[in-house]
Simulated assay, not measured.
Amino acid sequence: MVALTKKNKDLIIVVSGLPRSGTSLMMQILQAAGVPLLVDNVRQSDVNNPRGYFEYQAVKNLKNDNQWLKYAKGKAVKIISHLLYHLPAEFQYKVIFMNRNLDEIIASQNRMLKNVGKVSEIDDDTLKRHYAAHLFDIGRWLTHQKNMEVRQINFHHLFEKPQTELAILSDFLNIAFNTKQIQQVIQPELYRTKITGH
């Protein structure tokens, strides 16, 4: 584990974004960097996330129960973007927000559903408009939260220019990374739904 600075030890590192935006990959990166994670491994790895989901089940009920957040101090926890609104103001957060092409996100979600024998109940165009509106709203909201620092990390760039993105992440968290070690986590086979023309 990395020795978090005194300034960081009471911070909660939040990995967020839309579903299928690369949040699990970011949790893997932080783990490789030695950052402690708040996970419970209740949701096991599967064909959609062969390296695991890195989730903490209590997150899903954040709107009604946030008592568990005290255990997240000095750690990284994965919280999907629509739940960020429910984070209590009593804590300080550093939010790593995963940014990914919306067409890729939707294609990845459709692939995930197909793998479990389901189909989306919302057509792609409607879902894309919904996601775009949500990203605009949550982005505007985050800029007004005095207890939150936010850094966008581009999923595509993690694969195309990982050193640049990891340098941004290292600076944001004020943690020195072993870049070569971490880059081993960012494997091309993890980028399975790719749309050209970024």
Rank of each mutant, 00 (worst) to 15 (best):
L4G: 05
L4N: 02
T5K: 15
K7V: 08
I12Y: 09
V14Y: 09
G17L: 02
G17T: 00
P19M: 04
R20P: 05
S21V: 00
G22L: 01
T23V: 00
L25D: 03
M26G: 05
Q28Y: 05
I29M: 12
V35P: 00
L37G: 10
L38G: 05
V39T: 15
D40L: 01
N41L: 07
N41D: 15
N41W: 08
V42Y: 14
V47F: 07
V47W: 07
N48L: 02
N49W: 01
P50I: 03
R51A: 00
G52E: 04
F54R: 00
A58G: 05
A58R: 12
A58Q: 15
V59A: 13
K63F: 08
N64H: 14
W68N: 06
W68L: 06
Y71I: 01
G74E: 01
K75L: 04
V77G: 07
I79H: 06
I79F: 09
I80P: 00
I80K: 00
S81E: 13
H82M: 07
L83P: 00
L84D: 03
Y85L: 08
H86T: 02
H86K: 05
L87S: 09
L87K: 01
L87N: 04
A89V: 10
E90S: 11
Q92E: 12
Q92W: 02
M98K: 02
R100A: 02
N101M: 00
N101G: 04
D103M: 07
I105E: 02
A107C: 14
Q109M: 13
N110R: 14
R111I: 00
N115S: 14
N115F: 08
V116N: 08
V116M: 09
K118W: 11
E121Q: 14
I122P: 08
D123N: 15
D123Y: 14
L127D: 09
L127Q: 15
L127A: 13
R129A: 15
A132I: 05
L135F: 06
I138H: 13
G139D: 03
R140T: 14
L142V: 04
N147Y: 11
M148T: 05
M148V: 07
I153K: 03
H156V: 08
H157R: 14
E160F: 00
E160V: 06
K161R: 12
P162F: 02
L166S: 07
A167K: 15
L169C: 09
S170M: 07
D171A: 11
D171Y: 05
L173P: 06
L173A: 08
I175V: 13
N178K: 08
T179M: 12
K180I: 11
Q183L: 07
Q183D: 11
Q184L: 13
Q184I: 02
P188F: 03
P188G: 02
R192F: 10
T193C: 09
T193F: 12
T196Q: 14
